[in-house]
Structure formats: structure tokens, C-alpha cells
Design a protein around this nucleic acid. Structure first.
Lengths: 368, 368
DNA sequence: CTGAAAGCGCTTACAG
DNA sequence: CTGAAAGCGCTTACAG
């Protein structure tokens, strides 16, 4: 079995420490700690102390060094610091897409706690691609961050590798996403997607709906599967049948939901209510229903999931499940912090955050 | 981040490396190049060559090393590599907020070109705070990325520092945002916001509107100022007066726009058309207009800006200005690449990407 | 094709 | 309070 070596070797990396300014690239030579030491007439150790532990340095020395730092415009080479310390004080958040409104508040929560603990956040988007184990593994071993928060869906395939590796590389916490058995060893923070979806469907049924359809995400999304599972459980408990074609994949996007909705509207047994696995799809769903000349909720009711800021903006305003995104973010970071510090106590235990049904105007009583 | 991750899972990880595992933190000692060299009976230089320039190594040696790499689960310490090479192959993108739909396609464009050139993207959000020169400066000197793409608004205050710094640290390209004089030395890629806003306003006027209001972003946003400028220019050219209170700050958010719209609706000379500086605010604006029992566009017309994926979803669908977000992203990265390579030729020259007026249904003929 | 060695810029015990 | 020195893990001329 062949090892994966980098496809492109580094070309002409240039001479490090070369002080001759190139003609093309105008950047001046970067000042190192050595230069500062030289100018201020102390050792590099002392310069380092002035920056990292000023209390240990005599006032007079410190001022001398400070002056040299200002004069030279010196700033420590973070690359060298990180390398030397074996720590970056940076954590990486992996999410599906930067433009997904759901993550606004998750990030807010993460950032709040991160900032308070001296960590910088870097975001990496998968751009809707399901992360595979290799990609996550690569991040884990890259050491470019002290920990990893995974908010993106993972391909269930090959994830066993991770649990094995997890003990030799970066701490990981999984947020929002439901996790597979293979990843059960990782800490996770999320709502109970099954229960929430069940509650949503129960509500639709309580409004007299008997023909309830479900717009799901892609098969690879465990989270979606959980929501689908909750929907199925609710229907079953109410002795309602799910007809063939009532579950359509909307790909978690507006465009996908529009297509899925079109199919549902053309279904021989047209549903009276459509439960979308996220608000984004509910937006597309409502749009398509109206496009077909039908009314929401008079003709068809629509239920969303997430309660993003757009949920209140749809016409009619969307009835949906609220996920406490900010809180999930906060807790996710908190647990990562514990894992980084080696103090994570409930490692394998998922932390369940309560959700809430938000009743607005997109669900009405069934006409049939 | 270099994606170097052996495809093969580690065998018997417990037996590898020394066994001084701490009790609390379960992570095993990480394997270094030295260990691999030892096991395969070659020098670390050769191990390094196997990874970075396999062509230079004898087949037989390579296989031996490969075996040791697989056996140990070795993966190069990226921190050390980056430090040693003085290069990260990573570029950092700074944007205002994760969850802003506008950036979906900008990022898509950036990522496409970045990937093709072997760069990894890291995203940093300012979380709606205007970046100040110091923050940008800190990123620039941190060397944690090879270049910086700024998509967030910058406080105009203190930016002179940057132009000074720019010649001693990271290459920067500014995308989407209009730039101030102080930053004029940086390459930038954006649409002509003044012209686009003028065109939008001209269109409203062409539909018979004489009382046109403008919902702006915060004062710190140059981009918004440009759009406001275009609006003013159009009104002036049509000899239409802008009444006091017709320009309201909506903070670029839905909530802000709702408030701004409320004020506009209560204005003694109520506008017949409202031009919002972005789609996000237009969504809030339409919502508030309907909330007040008025119709769009029958009673009041609404114009957006950006043409995000939600523009088509509003009811009525939003008439707006299309920004070729993906193209902006591509061009922005391309210019950054040139700057990193020291080949940027039109450094100070902004690159203007064409915009387009998209007519949907939120603007009608003025009733008055 | 391979190894010994220098060195990237920093931090930190250690000794004074 | 300060300096000399070791060393983090890697890459790469240089010499063979």
C-alpha cells in the first residue's frame, strides 16, 4: 500500500534569514529577537523574558529592551513560538459553510468562551463536502491548532481510524452534529435531534395533520437521519402511515428544498404538512408552495428546524424548533478546553442541550 | 495545512514510542522524524527527502522508510515545517461574520483558486466588530499565514500604520470592501459601489419614485458610504430632494433594518421606495413594511443589494444589485497569490468587477 | 544516493 | 536579575 507523499515538493523556499531585499518583493527584512538583543545590549533570553515574563526583568533593562523593540518594529515570530512551545493557543472550527446562518450564534458562543480563555479561533469550511476521516485525521496530526471543533457532517465511512488516532493527536469535540458509534469516544454537545423532530411532528399531528411529509438532508448526514427517525417515530406512534415519496432529500439547501417540495406537491397523496429538516430548506419549501399558487398554512403547513434569524422573516413566520446555538457553542468550546487541559471527565458522554418548539404562523390546522 | 496523513491505520499504537503515557491525558507520545530514521536505519535527512522529494531517494531506501512511517504512524510536525520553511501555504480570510450568506460564494471563489494552487484557507471572523489597524497589524506580523484577504470593514482610523507595515510583513488584498485613501496602497477587488447604488436609485426613480429613502450600514463602513454616495448622486441628478430622516442606519442587520424601516414608515413624508444597502436589511425592511399592514411593492417599493440566495425567496422576490461574489473571490485570491510571489503588478490599483441590476418584484411604479 | 551538520527563532531550565 | 546553552523538529546546502 502506497504512502501518500505530497504531490508538489516545495519550490525555491528561499534563503531564510537572507537580509538582502529582493528587487521584486518590497518587504523589508524581518527583525528577529537577535537584532533586538544586539541593539539593547542584552541577551536574547532577556528579550524573551521582557516579552513573556516582564516581572522577572529589571525595570531599567526592560525599558532599554522596549525601546529597541519599538525602534526595530520587532514582533515575535509566531511560527517559531508555536513550534517551540508546542502550542498555538488556537483552536480550529470546522463547519460546512461560512454562509450558513445557523452558525452565526454557534460561533458567537464559541468565541465568547474562547476569548475569555485566551484562545484564537480559526474556521475551516468543508464547503458542503462531507468530511472524511482522512481530512479530519490530517487536521488532527497537523498540530496547527490545539484542538478541533467539528460542526460539519462527517462521512461515517472510515471514522474508526479517528477514535484510534484521537489518543495521539489533537483533542476534538463534536458540536451540533449527532455522532456515529465510531465517534462515540469523542465528547459531543448537541440537542436531542430525535426528540426534537418527534416533538415537531407531534405538533403537526396535534393540528390535525395526517399526511405529513419530511424534507431531509443528504443520506450522509447523521443529524438528518436522527430528525427523520424522530419524524418516523411520531408518525408511527400516531398510527399514521408514511407514504412512498413523502420523504424527499432537500440537500439542506434552498434549491434542493424547492425541488423536493415540487415533488411533494405533485404527489398523488399530497401531504398537508411538510416538515423540513432545517430552516434553510423551509424557506425554499414555503417559496415553492406559494409559487404553485398554494397558501401557507391554509393549504399546506410548513415546519422548520433551527430557528435562525430568517425564521421570523418568512411569510408567514416559520414555526420551527429552536436550537440554543450560542449555548451549544459555549459548551462545545468549554469541553474542548477541558480536553486540551487533559481534564475532560465525561469524554464519551454526549451533552444534550434542550431545544424548544417555537410556534409562529406557518402551521395551521389541517383542512382535511 | 499540508494534508499528510498515512492512509493506513496505525498498528498496535501502544507499542510504539516510549511508554511514559500520563495517567490523565491519554495521548501517546508523538513520533518525530528521528524515531522514523532510527527504525528504518537511515538519517533524518533521508526521511525528510522521502517525504518532500522522493525522487531523490533510492527505491529500496524509500520503501524501508515508508514502512517505518506506517509502522510508527509518523506524520510531520506542521508547526516545525512551517517554522523551518518560513511558509505556511495557508492564507487567512478575515470576514465580518460567519453566517452571512453573502460570503458563501466569495469563499467559494477564493477556495477554488486557492485549492488549485495548493493553499489552505483559514477564516477569521471579526464578529461585526470593525477591525482596527492594530488587529490587522497583529495578523500581518504573526506570520501564521502567507497572506491575508480582508473582507471585513476596517475602521478608517489609524490605518496609515498599515501601509507602513505592509512592507515588512504579510501581503494583503482587500476584497468586496471599498478602501480608504490610507489603504490605497493595497490591491483590492470589488464592484463599483457608487455606480451600482446610483444605478439602483436611478431604477427606482425611473419607476416614478420621487420619495426614495436609504437604509445604510454603520458609519464605519466605507462600502456603505459609497452606496449612500451613489444614492445621493442619483437623487441629485434627478433634482429630487432627500428629506431629513430619509437616510437611516440599519447596521447591516435584519434587526437594525426593522427599526430603521419603522422610523421611515413614520416619517411625515413617508418614502414610496426604500433602498437598502444590502439584502439582509431588505429582508427586515420588507418584513416590517408588511408588519405595518402595507404592501410591497404596491404601497412601498424595496430595493436590495448583493443578490444573495435569499433575494429570490422574499415575498415578493427582491429587486437588487447582483455582486459577482464568486468572481470577486477568485480574483481576490489570484491577486494575493501574485503578491505572495512578489509578482503583483498593479498593486495600488483596485480591480473593478461588473455588477448587475436584477429586476424582480419588490419594486413597482410609484402610486404618487 | 546519502549523511553530518548548520540553522530557522524562540523558550527555558540551569548556573551564576 | 541575567547569560550561555540546549533543544524544539524539521530542511537543505554541502561533501562525499
Amino acid at each position: 500500500m502506497a504512502l501518500k507523499f505530497p504531490e508538489t515538493p516545495v519550490q525555491n523556499p528561499g534563503q531564510i534569514g537572507d537580509t538582502s531585499a529582493s528587487t521584486k518583493n518590497k518587504s523589508l527584512p524581518v527583525v528577529s529577537i537577535k537584532k533586538v538583543a544586539e541593539i539593547s545590549g542584552v541577551s536574547i533570553a532577556t528579550v524573551s523574558r521582557c516579552i513573556n515574563d516582564p516581572g522577572k526583568v529589571k525595570e531599567k533593562t526592560r525599558l532599554k529592551v522596549q525601546e529597541a523593540i519599538i525602534k526595530t518594529g520587532y514582533s515575535p515570530n509566531t511560527l517559531a513560538q508555536n513550534f517551540r512551545r508546542g502550542k498555538t493557543n488556537m483552536i480550529m472550527v470546522v463547519l460546512p459553510s461560512v454562509g450558513d446562518p445557523f452558525f452565526t450564534n454557534v460561533m458567537k458562543g464559541i468565541r465568547t468562551v474562547a476569548k475569555a480563555n485566551g484562545y484564537t479561533i480559526m474556521i475551516n469550511e468543508t464547503q458542503f463536502n462531507t468530511m472524511n476521516a482522512d481530512e479530519i485525521g490530517a487536521m488532527m496530526v497537523s498540530r496547527q491548532a490545539d484542538g478541533l471543533i467539528l460542526l460539519a457532517s462527517m462521512s461515517p465511512f472510515g471514522t474508526e481510524i479517528l477514535s484510534e488516532r484521537s489518543h495521539r493527536a489533537l483533542p476534538i469535540v463534536i458540536g451540533c452534529e449527532t455522532i456515529s458509534n465510531e465517534l462515540a469516544a469523542f465528547p459531543s454537545v448537541h440537542i436531542d435531534n430525535v426528540a426534537a423532530a418527534r416533538e415537531a411532528t407531534d405538533y403537526l399531528i396535534s393540528q390535525g395533520h395526517k399526511r405529513v411529509a419530511f424534507v431531509s438532508g443528504p443520506d450522509t448526514s447523521l443529524l438528518t437521519k436522527d430528525r427523520e427517525f424522530g419524524y418516523r417515530a411520531s408518525m408511527k406512534a400516531a398510527h399514521l402511515q408514511i407514504e412512498n415519496g413523502w420523504i424527499e432529500d432537500g440537500g439542506m439547501t434552498i434549491a434542493g428544498a424547492v425541488k423536493a417540495t415540487r415533488k411533494l406537491l405533485n404527489h398523488p397523496h399530497r401531504p398537508t404538512a411538510i416538515f423540513c429538516a432545517n430552516d434553510e430548506m423551509a424557506i425554499g419549501c414555503i417559496h415553492e408552495i406559494k409559487q404553485e399558487g398554494l397558501r401557507v398554512p391554509d393549504d399546506i403547513s410548513v415546519m422548520g428546524f433551527d430557528d435562525t434569524r430568517y425564521a421570523e422573516m418568512t411569510d408567514p413566520p416559520l414555526t420551527t424548533i429552536f436550537q440554543p446555538a450560542e449555548e451549544i457553542g459555549e459548551r462545545t468550546f468549554y469541553r474542548l478546553l477541558k480536553a486540551i487541559e487533559g481534564n475532560e471527565e465525561n469524554e464519551g458522554e454526549p451533552e444534550i442541550i434542550p431545544h424548544k418548539l417555537i410556534v409562529r404562523k406557518s402551521v395551521g390546522r389541517s383542512a382535511v
